[in-house]
Design a protein around this nucleic acid. Structure first.
Length: 355
RNA sequence: UGGGAAGUCGCCAAGUGGUUAAGGCUCCGGUUUUUGGUGCCGGCAUUCGUGGGUUCGACUCCCCCCUUCCCAG
């Protein structure tokens, strides 16, 4: 089989490529660039984004690694797509008082979307696309569903839940059943791990508001009880649940409870005010199930870095409604609700309401 | 310029003769993290409105001045 592997130059993607080759596949490495359109924003020389590095040095390093692996390597320029499909939405969402998750959209639209298409158009021949993501794909009865990685601590299925059946059918995650420790140990023994090959791969390693290019728009910071407590420089600088950066010295810490785009106000309250029990998500992507006839028990995640929480979920028109008996804190509109049954992702969507 | 009260870190606020001048909030740094955010860890007044005085020793007692607030004008 011919496999195209998304390479960042990091330990994970490098080992993924190595494992595929070891399994006897014909492997091609690919790296995409997505920042050219906004090159002027590059905050650091070595800024990288997933397997979309910013600097020529990083790409050179990836090529070196591929040589070492004995595989071909190609770089694809996707910054226009990234700009139009991810960054434009990123900005619109923030202006609307929501908190977008660019990685979720980039994965389905760019990385596993436009880039794969573009790779084929540019003449690369491959059957499957692979990445170093920690997630698994389970096939049963002709249906593919995304599942958590065996190493739950490193699981990245939250960022991948929007992948379609078509995408999952031609994707594989070689690291899905390995732990980070195993990956690291293996990479070190193979000589693929060095100080230059850093682990961290950020979406953007500057201040995200730089990407927005939105003018400051002064407004009020208002407490739930109606008191005006201070001023803000624009609602796009805040996210629901945020504590830091309000600049208001109160008796207790204050958290952002809501963002009112119309009134240009940031609504704040105390920690207990962030507690919610119901989350509604739209733009649903079904994974292990295709619909819900009746409520089912599931584990729900409302943000990437949080442990799944027990909930009852049902379908209401095209939306998912999850009820969390024990409550959750500050689900931010625009982030994703991802539901799990055991290890499998049941479905997920964009949070449109939480209360 | 009559009467009363008060001035301790950016904000709030303990401390009333001998403390390393609490604590909370804000802020800053680190950590966690392929978004944002949370959480966690750490940092943050040699100085108590100013100037004198009493005392072995004062943020704590006394006096002047400055400032603020309340009442009366």
């Amino acid at each position: 089989m011919r496999v195209l592997v998304g390479m960042s130059g990091g330990v994970d993607s490098t080992l993924a490529a190595h494992l595929l080759k070891e399994q006897g596949h014909e492997v091609i490495g690919v790296t995409m660039t997505i920042w050219s359109e906004r090159a002027h924003l590059t905050p650091k020389e070595d800024s990288r984004s997933c397997f979309a590095p910013n600097s020529a040095e990083t790409i050179a390093r990836v090529k070196e690694t591929c040589e070492k692996l004995g595989i071909e390597h190609t770089t694809l320029e996707l910054s226009k797509n990234f700009e139009e499909l991810v960054l434009a939405n990123f900005t619109t969402e923030y202006l609307s008082g929501r908190t977008p998750n660019p990685c979720v959209w980039c994965n389905t639209l760019i990385k596993f979307g436009a880039m794969v298409d573009y790779a084929k158009e540019s003449g690369l021949v491959f059957d499957t696309f692979a990445t170093g993501h920690y997630a698994r794909i389970i096939e049963s009865e002709g249906r593919f569903s995304l599942a958590r990685a065996l190493d739950v601590k490193k699981d990245q299925s939250y960022f991948l839940y929007r992948l379609s059946q078509k995408q999952l059918a031609t994707t594989c995650f070689p690291l899905g059943s390995l732990t980070k420790e195993e990956v690291l140990a293996r990479a070190i023994s193979l000589g693929y791990h060095s100080p230059e090959i850093e682990e961290s791969q950020d979406f953007y390693d500057g201040d995200y508001t730089d990407l927005l290019e939105i003018e400051d728009k002064l407004g009020k910071i208002v407490h739930l009880d109606g008191r005006a407590l201070g001023e803000h420089r624009g609602i796009h600088r805040y996210t629901i649940g945020q504590r830091k950066g309000l600049g208001i010295a109160a008796e207790r810490p204050l958290y952002v409870i809501a963002l009112d785009a119309k009134a240009n106000e940031v609504i704040v309250g105390y920690q207990e005010d962030t507690l919610q029990h119901t989350v509604v998500a739209k733009e649903v992507v079904w994974q292990s199930r295709t619909s819900l006839d009746q409520p089912v028990a599931a584990m729900g995640k409302v943000r990437s870095a949080s442990t799944p929480t027990a909930c009852m979920v049902h379908q209401e028109k095209g939306r998912l409604v999850a009820h969390f008996p024990d409550g959750i804190h500050a689900a931010a509109l625009g982030q994703s609700l991802v539901l799990y049954e055991e290890d499998r992702v049941l479905a997920g969507g964009i949070i449109s309401e939480a209360f």
